[in-house]
Design a protein around this nucleic acid. Structure first.
Lengths: 210, 210
DNA sequence: CATAATATGTGGCTTATGCAACAGAAAAAA
DNA sequence: TTTTTTCTGTTGCATAAGCCACATATTATG
């Protein structure tokens, strides 16, 4: 894996001469894309936060993925197998780059540097994606709400290199992300506080165990 | 996505002249690889069945993934973030191809056709992998054991193009795959039978609804 | 600013699910 | 073959977690 490649800087310097990328802006609450209608799409979130959301027949909402800056998403990553609607909703003001995957793969004849770099690094970007998905699976296979919460906190904590951090999701969304009932999650959160495992001040979580 | 490419035939005709691939055989129960020790590894399961298994601190076993013929696995797909042991266990006699991912990426100077084809098609193979993982996530976000079972059956049914099919996993393993208690799953299975939703004769499942 | 909408926090009640224990069937090993 | 091990099927009991309802806090919006 080429560790010299800095994704952060790369996206920041976005400029694409060819006509293969479309750049769009969305305001909070807008639907960025749907996976059933828009096939073969690859999207890059340049700015903002968004959720991949599924509504099932029982009315349950699940946050399948939570995207922040530089996240890759789109139907290429999710060849739809079920008939559930999959929507990407903007949680804040978002800037998104849209590609058609098949066109993206071919080398750019416009000498478009961004595009070529993207193609070149696509495998490793996709591998990062896989790692995220595997982490998500590990989270979801936790048997209890408590274990889900603790693992989720631990993941964020590791990512932020700190025992104290802001939740990137509202509690309502977190419940949908962990695939548990919100009120049950709140109860468990209270128990975790009582057991001196975590503390919570507003939006801020503090891990108290070693 | 290049749909002319037939993975099935491709693996079948495996022959690699270069020294980059290692081919090994495992008997049932053997550990094929561990993700903590073997970094940067990409494996192809040429023959047999295997499970990616995690044992957590509470002694719970989870089947993170179930691999059959042609499956890709290895630590490249699972950059380890937690300290849980991840083992790939052979469920039957297995033949496995091992690559070091970094070496695989570079074009082969030995004119090794298999290797070059593999490199060329890696992105789409990896995208297939992502689709599997997303399906798995959708399965795990089902809220109840009943819904997990029904979705699992539905997935197999779609794959086999039939309302009747053999379970590819034992019931014990299925419970670990769905991340539920085995006895609770058995109970739910009985209820599904009583409700005339599914029938089960030995290892064979028959879907009865519409 | 006022008012609406959404998010948080809590509790009662019910049910699904986990856990433990066991018996019989099936499969593997000796 | 016999013996051992693993898998299946079932039940009673305890409890985690779902569901509902509501009060308050916080955040959007006209």
């Amino acid at each position: 894996m080429n560790s010299n490649f800095n994704i952060e800087n790369f996206y920041y310097n976005f400029s694409c001469n060819c006509n293969k990328a479309q750049k769009k802006t969305f305001s909070k609450g807008q639907i960025i894309t749907t996976y059933i209608q828009k096939r073969n799409q690859l999207c890059i979130l340049l700015k903002g936060n968004a959720d991949l959301v599924r509504y099932d027949l029982n009315g349950n909402r699940t946050i399948v993925e939570h995207f922040s800056k530089n996240a890759l998403f789109g139907e290429v990553f999710y060849k739809v197998t079920t008939n559930n609607e999959l929507l990407v909703e903007a949680k804040s003001k978002c800037t998104v780059l849209f590609y058609i995957y098949d066109k993206l793969k071919d080398p750019c004849t416009h000498g478009c540097e961004f595009h070529n770099t993207l193609t070149e690094h696509l495998p490793e970007l996709i591998l990062n994606k896989i790692t995220e998905l595997n982490t998500r699976i590990e989270l979801l296979t936790q048997r209890t709400t408590r274990d889900k919460l603790l693992m989720y906190f631990s993941l964020i904590s590791t990512r932020k290199l700190s025992k104290t951090f802001e939740l990137p999701l509202s509690l309502t969304d977190l419940a949908d992300y962990l695939s548990v009932d919100r009120s049950a999650m709140m109860r468990e959160l209270k128990l975790l506080k009582e057991d001196k495992m975590v503390d919570k001040i507003g939006n801020r979580i503090i891990l108290l165990y070693e």
